[in-house]
Design a protein around this nucleic acid. Sequence first.
DNA 1: GTAAGGTAGTCTAACGCTCAACTAGATGGA
DNA 2: TCCATCTAGTTGAGCGTTAGACTACCTTAC
Lengths: 158, 158
Amino acid sequence: MPCVRWLDPDEQRTWRSFLTATRLLFYQLDHELQRDAGMPHGYYEILVRLSEATDCTLRMSELADATLSSRSRLSHAVQRLEESGLVVRRSCPSDGRGALATLTSQGIAALRAAAPGHVAGVRAHLFDQLGPGQAMQLREICEAIIAHLDIRSAGGPA
Amino acid sequence: MPCVRWLDPDEQRTWRSFLTATRLLFYQLDHELQRDAGMPHGYYEILVRLSEATDCTLRMSELADATLSSRSRLSHAVQRLEESGLVVRRSCPSDGRGALATLTSQGIAALRAAAPGHVAGVRAHLFDQLGPGQAMQLREICEAIIAHLDIRSAGGPA
DNA sequence: GTAAGGTAGTCTAACGCTCAACTAGATGGA
DNA sequence: TCCATCTAGTTGAGCGTTAGACTACCTTAC
């Protein structure tokens, strides 16, 4: 039965809670987004990042970095979004290799429609469940993890 | 540029840190596991849960609940694991509908080979990065999230 | 007993992601 | 100039997941 040495009991309980909590939370938010906006969270994030850029436009590689996606993943995702009419691609004038992705007005509308519900979900399932101080604790914990992993993977997943 | 109303700045920073940290962490651990043990983290978890059960055996539905998987996902995953010789399935004697999954000795060996490296990764990328008290803070935060979401989805994803 | 409804698990198709190969344009040195 | 090399982005194959239909079995009520 105990086939394997594992974390100590305290760590193990924490680690499993972490796995469970993140899985339930992302599963829930992803479902809400899929149900209400017909898109997965990853695609939603692409729209968000574009919406924050000047002229709602970013280089593909900047967008990939911002969303922590591989270039390949982003390329596939943007292709889908383009097919749905939410984004357009054009080649970059200053660098012939590059491509620029821009949110269309339809994309902006889709984001405007999706965002309030999603934000409400994040509040309801995360922030509303945290006591005073816990949000800040969570942020510090996450920033510690990021500080460690960001260096090793120097700019995120290839 | 500001196409959308979002969380307040504090919440937003926390939320994005959370997204980034979890993504980097899971990405890293998944890669290590894929590289060192040739299996994704989800499959590893199935082996872990089986290894903890009496006779290394669980009903498919219990295993699905334990790993927070849909039945469909578990069915596919166990099929793969069975093809790799790490798990066997047989029908449940007490319930003709049911199926029992059992870890093979090869599965135990695979788990024994994979576990130390994975545990080391969890420590290195998570626990070693946390200051005193932060692990407990993280656990409490996660348990609060779980308490909220577990009720709504009554037993996890369908 | 039998029909209705519930439960366990599988199967197929579609989707998103990963990896590796590939194209095309930029860059730097001889 | 020319070639090697690097960078940006795309593509295709394969894998894991999802959703939903489907089969088989159990359970309950009549």
